[in-house]
Structures are given as structure tokens and as C-alpha cells.
Amino acid sequence: MTAKLQLVDIKKKLRGRQVLDGVDLDVAPGQSLVVIGGSGQGKSVTLKCALGLMKPDAGQVLVDGAEVTRMPREIRGRVMKKFGMLFQGGALFDSLTVWENIAFRLIYADKVGRKEARDRALATMRKVRLAPEFADVRPIELSGGMQKRAGLARAIIAKPDILFFDEPTTGLDPITADAINDLIVEMVKEIGCAAVSITHDMASARKIADEIAMLHGGKIVWRGPAAQIDNSGNAMVDQFIAGRADGPIQAVV
């Protein structure tokens, strides 16, 4: 089966440092892959390369088997329609209301009329359990958890083929974080899309992943089913999930 998304030998250097040194990843349709790893190990860079927000120095990104890394900007825009993304800080547009944020793609990229777009935004708000009375407020008036819900609604409204989640539970209290995890699992199942998440929150990883991959030193050092993470046989994975300072991974402080 053709992978929905495939990263082949991705390399990226930033400010003289080799952040990614040959990352290989693939996600099958309907699969949820979580990439874990310490801070500064290149998780966000991997995601940005996959999304086309950053150009890798070497390697290929394939979407449905088609190489997209060096596509012209105009054609690349069409590939973007297959993606949905929940950003770590929400990245909601300050100048727009919540419903306009959620319906942004429908209004400005798909040219859906404002009335229909609003109706669909309200329906999606209900799906992510965000009360419709928040539709006309600005994102700044929402709590952190509500902003994540709005961001999730914006990511799923156009039913993308691949959903990306950047640290979906960072900055949330454990209960809200668990609710967001449940929503992610529910939405990914409902849409039937592939999902790629990056996190260092193991509770989140265990809940939303079918498979987990660990990124360290610019490479994927382990990958396996989420259920096997506790018996990975990899010292780095063991150290990471146990949250120990001593081990093969040196803490950066």
C-alpha cells in the first residue's frame, strides 16, 4: 500500500547545526504515528519539512507517492489541501473571530459562501465540544484548552487526508490535555485520515498513537507499535519514557 506520507532521508542544517541527519518516516492511510523526542531534537523541523513550511537540504517528501519537496509554490498549494494542522500555540488569527478562524480555509481557499462556511464552522465547533456562543468572540478571549479545540476544529473542517499535531497537549492541565487527546483520537477515527503528531508528553503519545517513533540526534532511533513502547529494548526510549536524567541521552540544561 502506498504510504500517505513518506519522508526519505531528510537532512536539514540550521545555524550550522545538523538538526535532521537522514530522517526516514512513513505513515499509512488511517494510521496515527507519534514522534517523540527531547527538546531540540528536530521534531518541529521534521513536521515543518513534511508540511512544506521548511525546505530540507536533502531528501524527499512524498504525499500519496508523489514527490512534493521541490514542487512550484502554486502546485504545492494544492497538496496543502490534503493537510490539516494543529499548532502548538493554536496559531489562531487574532484579527478574526473564532468561527472565521475555523472556516478560514472554506472562505478564502475553497471560496465557500460565508453563510455556509459559518454553518459548517458551528457544526465543527459542536464536534470538538466548543460551545457555539464562542463563535463570535476573538481567540484571545478563549482559554488555552478552548484555543486548542478551535485549532482542532480549523484543522479538521475540510476533512484533510493527513492531520498534523504539534505538541497538542503542551501548556494544558492534565484533565484538559486528556480531553484533547480523546478528541484527537475521535476526530482521526471519524475522518479516517492519517495522523502525525509530535510530542514529549508520553501520556498523550500512548493515547493517540498506533505507532511511536523516537527522534534523537537527527535520526529515528526506534519505531514500533505504541503497545510495545515499554518493551522497546532501546536504552534511549527507556530513558525517555521513564524521564530519567541518567542514561545514553544527555540532558541539555
Partner: peptide, 9 residues
Amino acid sequence: DAMNTLSTD
């Protein structure tokens, strides 16, 4: 970045 992912230049 979010705008880019929403297919809007």
C-alpha cells in the same frame, strides 16, 4: 505558517 497550511498564500 498556519495560513500556508490552510492553502492560502
